[in-house]
Amino acid sequence: MTDKTFNADSVPVLALGYRFQWEPAQDCYVLLYPEGMVKLNPAAGEILKRVSEKKQTVDELIADLKAAFNGADLDDDVYQFLEEAHDNDWIRAE
C-alpha cells in the first residue's frame, strides 16, 4: 500500500456516484455505483453504513463501532479497511 490517506481526524465519505444500501434479496449491504455493485461482508457493511449515514472523523467512527460491538479492539482493522476502500475508489477523505 502507498501513503496512508486516513488519520484520526480525517472524515471518510462515499465517493461521488456511490450509494450504500441494504439488499434484502442479497441478504447483505451493497455498494452501488455506475453499472456495478459490490457485495459487502458484515464488517465492511457496518463501517460503510456509518460512513454513509454521518459525516464524522475516523476517531468518532471507531468510537461508534466500539460502542456497538462491546468495545472490541478494532482500530487497525478499520484503518486497514478504509485504506482498501480508498484504493478501490469507494470512499475519499474530506
Binding site: 453499472e35 455493485m37 459490490v38 459487502l40 465492511a44 482493522d77 478501490n88
Partner: peptide, 17 residues
C-alpha cells in the same frame, strides 16, 4: 475482523471485468 467487499457484478457489455 476481515473487511473486504466481495463480489462485483459489472454490466455486461461494460468494461471493468
Amino acid at each position: 475482523m476481515t473487511t473486504t467487499g466481495s463480489e462485483q457484478n459489472k454490466a455486461p457489455g461494460s468494461t471493468g471485468g
